[in-house]
Amino acid sequence: MFSKIALAIAFSPTTESLICEAKRLKNIFGASLLLIHVGEKNPVLEETLRGLLNKHGLSYSKIKTIWEKGNPAKKIIQACNEENVDLLVAGALKTEGFFKYYIGSIARKIIRKSKCSVLMLVEPLEIPTSFDRVVINGTQQEQTPFVIQKGLEWCKMDHAKQIYIVNEIKMYGFQMVTAGEGGEEEISNTRRKLISEEITYVENILKTIDKGDLKINIKITSGKWAFELARFAVDFKADLLIVGDEGKLGFLDRLFPHDLEDILNDLPCNLLIVKK
């Protein structure tokens, strides 16, 4: 699934935990590991990194480390492109807050502009565990079949125990009925029909995928998909939320919260953004 994994390090208090998480993923996918640091390079930091890698059974001499200066997001993305990285792993603040939304954040820029998939870890562990409880976005979008396929591939390799694919009722159809003169029975029947259609949409995708022994549940919500997806991830106590990339956004999308921004603004859990 991933042949080269990059870890962005900033020598923050979570650096050791992020290294441990990256090592776990390296082993799961049989991937090579690349480290990227944007900032000062000096003997102290090199020795610190060497010590952390050796402590957790990783050889400093066998793992390539890129030291860069300049704009962190730009340099990280550039390094990932030049090194043909499949998955970029980075730490993230669980809540960014209103002010940071408008000035932007390194994490948000990386997610938007990177060509590879991105895993944002909100609470990395020094003794990592598998992501047992996984939520995958099943909302009808162009990339959804690919996202579900790759999400389930991840779940199989990581031995996830509980998986939900979350889809939404297209509210405009339901609102048209409720705005008319139909009675409660008609409204109820229409809701059941819309739910059935969304379940069928996901089931048809699942028929084309090798699911192995995974036990998959389908959850249908109503409302703004990203908000409902994040809320369900919180209620489910998910370890990992998997979504697709929305592609390039225009100027107005950057000024006003977009669908994925609802998730990025207040991460419900670890987040994997799958990109082709």
Rank of each mutant, 00 (worst) to 15 (best):
R191P: 07
S222P: 03
I195Y: 03
F251R: 05
S117L: 04
V274L: 14
D245I: 06
L87H: 03
Q141E: 15
G250C: 12
R50A: 06
V89C: 12
F236W: 12
N217E: 15
N27P: 00
D210S: 12
G138C: 00
D262I: 01
I9M: 01
G182V: 05
K69R: 11
K75R: 10
G30N: 13
G173C: 05
M171I: 03
F2K: 10
Y172D: 09
G180D: 00
H37A: 08
K219W: 06
V243E: 09
V202E: 05
N189Y: 04
M1E: 09
T190W: 00
K75T: 06
G51D: 10
S117N: 04
D253W: 04
F2T: 07
L18G: 01
N84R: 08
L240S: 09
I63M: 10
R192I: 08
M120C: 07
P145F: 06
E186R: 02
A79Q: 01
L52S: 02
F146S: 15
F29R: 11
L52V: 06
Q143N: 15
A233T: 00
L264F: 14
G30C: 13
E203T: 07
D245A: 10
C20E: 10
G223L: 08
G244F: 05
L260S: 05
C80A: 14
D235N: 10
D262A: 03
K41P: 07
L264Q: 11
G30L: 08
Q140E: 15
T200M: 05
A179H: 02
K193Y: 11
F232G: 13
D239R: 11
A226E: 08
V243N: 02
I187A: 09
T178R: 08
S105L: 05
N54D: 14
E40L: 11
A8P: 03
S12N: 12
P43S: 14
F227E: 12
A90M: 15
I136V: 02
P128V: 03
F146I: 15
E186Q: 02
A22P: 00
L49F: 01
I187M: 06
K23A: 15
W67K: 04
L121M: 14
G223N: 10
T15C: 14
T15I: 01
A90E: 00
I77K: 02
Q162D: 12
G247M: 13
I103E: 14
E246T: 00
L255T: 02
E82Q: 04
A31I: 05
L194H: 03
H258D: 14
I242A: 02
V202N: 00
V122M: 07
Y102C: 09
G183C: 02
L252H: 12
E123A: 05
T200V: 04
L241F: 11
E47N: 13
P13F: 15
V122K: 06
I36H: 10
S59L: 09
D239A: 13
M1I: 03
I273Q: 07
C20N: 15
F256C: 13
S3P: 08
I216Q: 07
F236I: 08
V38P: 03
Q140H: 13
F236C: 12
F98I: 14
L241G: 04
L264K: 05
S117R: 10
S61G: 10
L35R: 07
I77P: 01
Q140V: 11
G180L: 09
A107L: 06
P43M: 11
T48E: 11
W154R: 10
I28K: 07
K69S: 12
E46N: 01
D253Q: 13
G180W: 08
E184V: 00
L33C: 06
G173R: 04
